[in-house]
Write a protein that binds this DNA or RNA. Structure first.
Lengths: 306, 306
DNA sequence: CAAGGGTATGCGTATCCGGCATAACCGCAA
DNA sequence: TTGCGGTTATGCCGGATACGCATACCCTTG
């Protein structure tokens, strides 16, 4: 005997019992529930059998809950309410009426384009409630996969996940190379990719920045060589520290030129093909209007920015 | 098309979906749910129709939840867990395995018998969790009716509700009469009921102390007269204030002699039939062992007290 | 291109639920 | 007492429906 009966069926019976107790009468509850009185009567008997105790005191003038019946009401009424609310929310969501929009981004990378886009979204869709999550690229992808994010703003790493989600390229930044402050390279105003041939490269952990090392390799390949990754570490800060201490190099999106790191200089890379794509990813399937709106604003903001 | 479908049925489907997503496969989930794979497959389709959106991404190697599916899991998994816990608790309760015992009492009246009984209950049934509620008689009866109390310790008022619940008389106290301090009656060591003939009686609001006025009337009837209630007020403190200011009287259980109220003297009533019964009420139906134990201890404590 | 994993579908059947008619029960009034 | 109006419970039957079986379909892999 599968206990499949003991779940959904009981739920119906419980819901029925709630109205029976509200009405104080099987008869009146039956009309409200649009079923016949005998049917409802039997439902109550079934529920009492399932639970193993009387729930209603049958009297000549109607029914009255027993102590057990009261206990059931107390524990179940909020559950039923929550359940109905949850179903309603899911229905809205299925129709693409999400009012909450969960956005993942990396503050250092996304700020310049995200901030104006959000400002305009607030004007055009003031009803949308935003939840912003400052996350690493890897966390953003995981968040999308787990359904915890609706939109992710991500760099080159997005390429590895683009097939799982809808995506749009927002724009391209230039590339710079991080070199040790003391070295010869640090004095140049710019460094072509081919000049990096033979340098030690610092890689970054694939877990945190998926696709980043491949991106570097691909860039170097356009310059005709294969980079040698002497070390792979986790965390961009550690990468930069190693650049300084090991007198090595690494490739980064151009916005790093705005930052500072002790012992490290960022030098632009002029190669035309050295580009850092900036991507927005969002959930596949029925796309909520709010998501669509944000993506649109992002595209426009990126276009203005370029 | 009664929406009765949209409640319990969906609950089953949702529960099924949860295991499908856990297993990542309709096949394996079907095994766990002890139904066939086609049945489960159709259940998932039905649920998707109900909600109006895809929940599962069907792939060659199994199924993967969509964003909507993830949202469903997030909102429903805790609900299902709560539901199952609630049902389990109700089952236990139906079998009479309540571990929580909610006791209503009136501190001034019940202390002498309740305290020792509780002490012994703690020894003999240490697993019982007690919740004590200091409530007026009316509140206690309402609490019993609403299933919010398991046991009520109550005075003469219990008579009016005795038919609704199980009850036991714990014992009888004597009666005293409250008289104004200045009057002639106040000087006597005791006052027979018949001496109160012609006095103004202060009644108490039936809402708060149901049956109290009837009790006074019945006592006076044994002495051959009918009391005249000049005023009926709510709250025992107000009753005593009026006794003082109106030079009236009222009948009370003997334990009031221990208390003080400005301008009022409590004089014992010697009549043999002037008794204040002390009653314990508890929920009808299947009586939990804990309730039975407390009632037993109360009886013994009362017997020792007498 | 067959094999082997997955999910979806067509069809017959058994189950189970609900409605109708009616019984049983109670309180009240004539 | 006997009816009357109200309640809940029961017998019986018909119809919806959900399941299982067999099979189709689809994709990846050898």
């Amino acid at each position: 005997m599968p206990d499949t009966h003991t779940l959904g069926f009981m739920m119906d019976r419980i819901r029925a019992l709630l109205t029976v107790i509200e009405e104080g009468s099987v008869n009146r509850a039956a009309v409200r529930l649009r079923i016949s009185q005998p049917a409802l009567s039997r439902q109550m008997q079934a529920l009492e059998n399932e639970l193993g105790g009387k729930l209603l005191e049958r009297e000549t003038s109607g029914v009255k809950p027993t102590a057990l019946g009261h206990a059931l009401v107390r524990s179940m009424r909020p559950l039923v309410a929550d359940y109905k609310a949850a179903v309603a929310e899911l229905r809205r969501q299925a129709r693409g009426e999400r009012s909450e929009l969960r956005v993942g981004y990396l503050i250092s990378a996304a700020q310049s384009v995200l901030t104006p886009a959000l400002a305009r979204l607030r004007e055009s869709h003031p009803e949308v409630k935003l939840k912003l999550h400052d996350l690493s690229p890897r966390e953003q992808i995981d968040g999308l996969r787990a359904g915890e994010l609706d939109v992710a703003l991500i760099g080159q790493e997005g390429a590895v996940a683009a097939s799982e989600f809808y995506s749009a390229r927002l724009g391209s930044l230039g590339v710079c190379v991080a070199v040790a402050e003391g070295g010869e390279l640090a004095t140049r105003p710019k460094i072509a990719l081919k000049d990096l041939k033979g340098c030690d490269f610092i890689g970054i952990d694939e877990e945190q920045m998926p696709g980043r090392n491949q991106w570097m390799s691909a860039l170097c390949k356009t310059a005709g060589f294969k980079p040698r990754f002497s070390v792979v570490v986790d965390g961009i800060t550690n990468v930069l520290s190693l650049v300084a201490s090991e007198n090595a190099v690494t490739l980064l999106p151009a916005y790093f030129q705005e930052f500072k790191h002790p012992g490290v200089t960022f030098v632009p890379v002029p190669d035309a093909r050295a580009k850092w794509d900036f991507t927005v990813l969002w959930q596949r399937g029925k796309v909520p209007a709010s998501t669509r709106a944000l993506v649109q604003e992002l595209k426009e903001a990126a276009a203005r920015f370029a």
